[in-house]
Write a protein that binds this DNA or RNA. Structure first.
Length: 420
RNA sequence: GCGGGGGUCGCCUAGCCUGGUAGGGCGUGGGAUUGCUAAUCCCAUGUCCGUAAGGACCCGUGGGUUCGAAUCCCACUCCCCGCGCCA
């Protein structure tokens, strides 16, 4: 949700954003709805004022045993007009909110403008791309020969894009989670394992409606949705709250399984565990003062870099262009890890600043002193590790000549071995 | 799942029976005063509209009855206690 003040005072800023994002949106209709919504508030407020005045007068007269017939007649009349107006107001309000909830976030000035991912800008490369003196295998190959993944039976039991992890890959999955939690705990993040099912209003606060269809599973018969990431559950954790300014920034290390429909991804990354419906993720989530969110964003990214450097993982950092940017994000960095089996960089981390966009939808505010006007805070989120994708990169980059996987130093103590 | 009790403006609580401007305490912020970090007193402390003056809304949520609902009625929801089931 955008600040309605921008809508009123600077609609061109929004028009530019829609253009930059290459999004169709009936902005004029939203402006009109905002206007009529406010007009109706003024009208109904006036009527309620009148009603309150008469009501007080009736109470007074009743106490004094005076006649109230004409006043009650007036009340009846006023109430009738008010009821009609209220119906109109509720309708307008709901139309406004419905539409306002679908508008995407503003785009940060530092974001490259362009229609799709071809315009994403690389800003950094780290690490040496591994060279092999043998025929490189992809992760599917490796996991099959080491009996680490069973895709066929998963397909039988659950369908495409599901998997059974087996043997040491189960432990590697856990090792990544544990390493990530330790890593963030050391940086004073509060670990939080979230509910995996959340209700509609929480989900709608965290994402935009279209995404419900594309990525979110719904539980039949209940007002519950499977989270696509712990971000959804952590963001809504403080909904409808006014936080004390002094506790900011709030930094959470969210842990959860993640569930995604991956609608529209048919044909892409069809095989293996790169693109799946379920995986585990440790996520950085920050509630920040507005003036500090850009700094926090950079800090999150540098945490991510440190994490993957310690994992000895070659990567590059991209800034997503306006056309590729998620609707709720104002600016997103992706970390793309080198994947030897595919001979290319692939996305494994997404690091976003949502500014006050989610906070407005979820009504999360803060203030420094009791009598201050509460203001919306900023929310930021970034993958630290999404297990399956990082496992793919580890398998492919750390493969050995004899078909095994060597384990990066930082993970060895969690796995209790140096090779799989 | 069944039975019982509950949800009041950050926290605690009054008001509900008997409908008529939601009151108090604590905490917090600001101020006054006192030669101490204490005490006392005053003001403020939910949301929305409005530049403001001001006004409207707010008693878990949504309906209903009524001129008027925190209060009466219905449904839902969450919490607590007991029973049942259960990793």
């Amino acid at each position: 949700m955008l600040d309605p003040k921008i809508l009123r005072e600077n609609p061109d800023k929004i028009r530019k954003m829609l253009n930059d994002r290459n999004v169709d949106f009936p902005l004029d209709e939203l402006i009109k709805l905002d206007k009529s919504r406010r007009d109706l508030i003024i009208k109904t407020d006036e009527l309620r004022k009148k009603r309150n005045e008469i009501s007080i007068e009736i109470a007074k007269r009743k106490k004094a045993n005076q006649d109230t017939t004409s006043l009650i007649e007036q009340m009846q009349e006023t109430s009738q007009i008010l009821t009609d107006l209220e119906i109109e107001q509720t309708q307008t309000e709901s139309n406004y909110t419905k539409l306002a909830l679908t508008i995407p976030n503003l785009v940060d000035e530092s974001v490259p403008i362009g229609k799709d991912d071809t315009v994403n800008r690389e800003i950094k490369k780290w690490g040496k791309i591994p060279q092999f003196d043998f025929k490189v295998k992809d992760h599917i190959n490796i996991s099959q020969s080491l009996d680490l993944v069973d895709l066929e039976r998963a397909a039988k039991v659950s369908g495409a894009r599901f998997y059974y992890l087996k043997n040491d890959l189960v432990k590697l999955n856990q090792a990544l989670i544990q390493y990530a939690l330790d890593f963030l705990s050391d940086k004073n993040y509060t670990p939080v394992q979230t509910p995996y099912l959340i209700n509609h209003s929480s989900m709608e606060g965290a994402i935009i409606a279209q995404d419900f269809e594309d990525v979110i599973y719904k539980i039949e018969g209940d007002d519950l949705y499977l989270i696509g990431t712990s971000e959804h559950a952590v963001a809504s954790m403080h909904s409808d709250e006014i936080l004390e300014g002094k506790i900011l920034p709030l930094r959470y290390a969210g842990l959860s399984s993640c569930f995604r429909k991956e609608a529209g991804a048919h044909g892409r990354d069809q095989k293996g565990i790169f693109r799946v419906h379920q995986f585990e993720k440790v996520e950085q989530f920050i509630f920040s003062r507005p003036e500090e969110s850009r700094k926090e964003h950079e800090q999150m990214l540098s945490n991510v870099e440190e994490f993957y450097q310690k994992l000895e993982m070659p990567y590059r950092i991209m800034i997503l262009s306006s056309g590729d940017l998620g609707k709720i994000s104002a600016k997103t960095y992706d970390l793309e890890a080198w994947m030897a089996g595919q001979n290319s960089y692939r996305e494994i981390v997404s690091c976003s600043n949502c500014l006050d966009f989610q906070a407005r939808r979820l009504k999360i505010r803060f203030r420094d002193r009791t009598n201050d006007q509460p203001q919306y805070l900023h929310t930021l989120n970034s993958t630290l590790v999404a297990t399956t994708r990082t496992i793919v990169a580890l398998m492919e980059n750390f493969q050995t000549k004899d078909g095994h996987i060597s384990i990066p130093k930082v993970l060895q103590k969690y796995l209790n071995k140096t090779i799989i």
